[in-house]
Computed example of a mutant assay.
Amino acid sequence: MSKADELRRKAKRRKILIQAGLIGLSVLVIVGAVTTARTNLEAQGLTSGFGFLDRSTGWDYSFSLVPKDIMDPYARTLFVGFLNTLFVGFIAIFLTTLFGFIIGTARDASNIAIKSAATVYVQIFRNIPLILQLVFLYAVLINLPGPRQAMSMGDTVFLSNRGLMLPGLSVTPGVAVGLLLASFALGVFLIWRKMPLFRGLVVWLGGSILMCLVTAFAMRPEGASLVSVPALQGLRFRGGITIPIELFGMIIAITLYGSAYIAEVVRGGLAQVPKGLTEAGQALGLTTGQIWSRIKIPMALRSIIPPLGNQWIFMMKATTIGVAIGFSDLFYIVSISITQSGQTLELIAILAGAFLLVNGGLAVFTNWLNARMKLKAH
């Protein structure tokens, strides 16, 4: 064995020993912290462990996608909060991406008025803290007229201090959540098949609408119409879809804030497309829309997707601001559970684990999507 090989082996062994030492030190620190915390809890008469998850909560909360009861155990209540977080997060991700692309494209427009309006929008909503926007918007919404004086649009859409009432398919909330997941899966499948942008959007939209109509026709209650329209009965609206004022405020606030950031991501990606490509498209007689969809967006996506994924993860974490207005997302449920049960460490671990799971999944999806777009560009 040469001297160079022996030196490499010694360096490798040294690296392994250092890494093993760091891992061992980390384990000791974690074990020591857990042991100390358990000792302190026992000294205060508090029990540790996850046995409390089977106990009934005895308290209520505002919003749930599935049936709930005041005597639900902590496990089910936390699961409801987790579903609410996913629901708000994915709606916010979809809307912020949609409006972000629209505003980012406007920022790249040649029309001075459109470009200036998009710039003003970005500067306003990006530079005001999200929680301040939410609290201001919520203060406006809760001071709207009551149901009897609700603002109406064609006697089918109503907005009051109770929330936003919309026409909807005659399905249960659980079925509606299932349809959302099926629509998301269809979108992922179309991306996997590398379908062109506008054709993919048309197929996704048409397929989602068809799934909704077929499901509503097959699973609607006996004698019920396919579409349920909200109608005022007494002091509340019945029928249709009711979006509580807290949920409505959160969706609007996160969408306004997040779309400003995504617009900048889109604008930066479009700016990186070589001008020679757009000039070549113009020379071939392509319209502005064709240049945007067939040249600029496909080329820009390779640089847009990675920072876009970061914004998606931020949108999911931004759902925690719901605690400021009493929306029952996972962070709110965990906060109340800590107060009622005293299981601080366990509940914080559940909260952290849930966000690690969701945001880790988003990161994996972003990497997969980026790889698909890169393969398509070659």
Rank of each mutant, 00 (worst) to 15 (best):
Q133V: 06
G187R: 09
L201V: 11
T156M: 12
F158R: 03
I142H: 07
L159R: 06
V140F: 03
G200A: 15
P145V: 05
L169R: 04
I191L: 15
G146F: 01
L201I: 11
L197Q: 13
G146D: 01
F198T: 13
G154K: 02
M195E: 09
I191R: 15
L186W: 06
R193H: 14
P221Y: 02
S208Q: 01
F189K: 12
M151I: 13
N143D: 07
G146M: 02
G154H: 05
V171T: 08
V227E: 01
A224N: 02
T156Q: 13
A176K: 13
D155G: 07
S152T: 09
L226E: 02
L226S: 04
V140H: 02
L130K: 08
S225D: 05
S160Y: 07
I142W: 06
A224G: 00
L186M: 14
P145S: 02
V214L: 09
L186N: 08
G168R: 10
M219K: 00
Q133M: 10
M219N: 00
S160F: 10
R126W: 02
L181F: 14
L213S: 09
A150F: 09
L205C: 10
L197R: 14
M151F: 15
L201E: 08
N127K: 07
I131K: 06
V188Y: 13
T156L: 10
A224E: 03
F198R: 11
L132H: 02
V135H: 07
V135C: 06
N161K: 11
L166I: 11
V227P: 01
I131T: 11
L159Y: 11
N161F: 05
N127G: 07
R148I: 02
G200E: 12
P167H: 08
V175Q: 15
P196Q: 10
N161M: 07
S160E: 08
P147G: 03
V140P: 01
I191H: 15
L144R: 00
R126D: 02
L134A: 00
S152H: 03
G206S: 15
